[in-house]
Amino acid sequence: MYETIRYEVREHVAWLILQRPDKLNAFTEQMNKEIVSALKQAAGDEMVRSVVITGEGRAFCSGEDLAGVTEELDHGEVLRTRYAPMMKALHHFEKPVIAAVNGVAAGAGMSLALACDFRLASEKASFIEAFIHVGLVPDAGNLYYLPRLIGHAKALELAVLGEKVSAQTAYELGLVTAVIPESEWETEVQRFAAKLAQMPTKAIGLIKRLLRESGSGSFAEYLEKEAYGQRIAGLTEDHREGVRAFFEKRPAVFKGK
């Protein structure tokens, strides 16, 4: 049903694979839309407990397809109508999302990776804030996430200088969770996604919510949100199972409920 992406669910993990390898998985309007519907599908599917976003071929995603950029283009409207829905869908997505960065993540492709909860980088991966090279500003939420991940100074360096950041450098910056050797790439990504898919899904969603909101509002407001969050988590089956397993001195079996 999708043409620019592939969507598969295996063992509680949803795989969202960008599928335009000959264009280095550059975004088109259709791809933006398909990603939104795939995320909706994953959000509504009880079987899905973690999501992996990755690219087919040698790139993760090279950003906006410049073939569609013309003189008349209203860049602001492109962001509002195409990118904002996709970035909002990711921002409010409750299940854990991993960007499995298999190759270059450039421009809005880098933004996509930044919006995920975890970034796993293959040795061959790289990140490029390509926007400056065509006289534009990083978009698709890029500069919202970047300073939160690596701090203001480094974010500015990357965005203004636009230099290619290797997987290893990205790891040192704290941009990625792990750099994975090429030979173990697929098994390691699978293992990581499977591990997340066995954790208390609701609690992960609530942690995401709290972290998202911890940057805004007062401390008192935050504590109130925390109380809501813990009340919700306290009502889950996974919480009861966790406590039971603790007293029975056995590993907990979480069901994501």
């Binding site: 919510r209 809501y228 969050g229 919700i232 009502l235």
Partner: peptide, 9 residues
């Protein structure tokens, strides 16, 4: 404004 899960409560 309340978390959806707790609205009625």
């Amino acid at each position: 404004v309340v978390a959806p899960e707790l609205l009625l409560e």
